[in-house]
Amino acid sequence: MPHTVGPAPELFTLDAVSFVVHDRVVLDDVSDHIHEGHATAIVGASGSGKTTLLRMLNRLEEPTSGVILFRGVPLPELDVRELRRRVGMVSQRSTMLTGRVDDEVRVGREELTDGDVDGLLEQVALGHIERERAPADLSGGEQQRLALARALAVGPEVLLLDEPTSALDQTAAASVDAVVGRLVDAGLSVVLVSHDLRRAAALTDDALVLDHGRLVDRGDPSDVTYLGGG
């Protein structure tokens, strides 16, 4: 059942998704699609509900009403751990979970060989980093790229990125963007949350614009209207 491919080419289908917490409407009746093989931006100011929407795609949050489908299957019908292995995530400030770079890559998949780990580190431009170094000692940009390798290690079909560069300086941000750009070029589906439409437009070819929990525009990142911050 997990590998059912629906009739639609959509990766995710959002059907009247709302989220209310403590009487505050975070997402208000959002319906749309996120396509396979594309890099899709979800842009909006802080408080627009974009991070909540992203966290719903791997069930770290649950809609108050409405339903989200992954390849045509409602998320609650999929085994949640299987779903999370197929839908990888990298957050704004990645928390390093282990004491060694190679252990960090293996958190989600212990059985990786040294060669696998090397390959993943190469993929995120960290081939030069010594494997026994402590992830906590790496720079912010290196930590984010290591978090990417950690997520890729599990073999996801799509990568959710929550403002992965907003806590970084220009150079570090560019190094992360370069890695993400290469993954997108290689055909990996990506959903990128950002408050900065211009920055997101450089990496994505599709955009959903959220404003106070409502989906207000949808289309090519260079055409959509977004008056939010950043």
Binding site: R81, S91, T95, V107, G108
Partner: peptide, 15 residues
């Protein structure tokens, strides 16, 4: 203190 790291592990498919 460790909500972020617990969620990071969950997001990697850990139980």
């Amino acid at each position: 203190d460790q909500r972020a790291s617990i969620e990071a592990r969950l997001a990697l498919g850990l139980s």
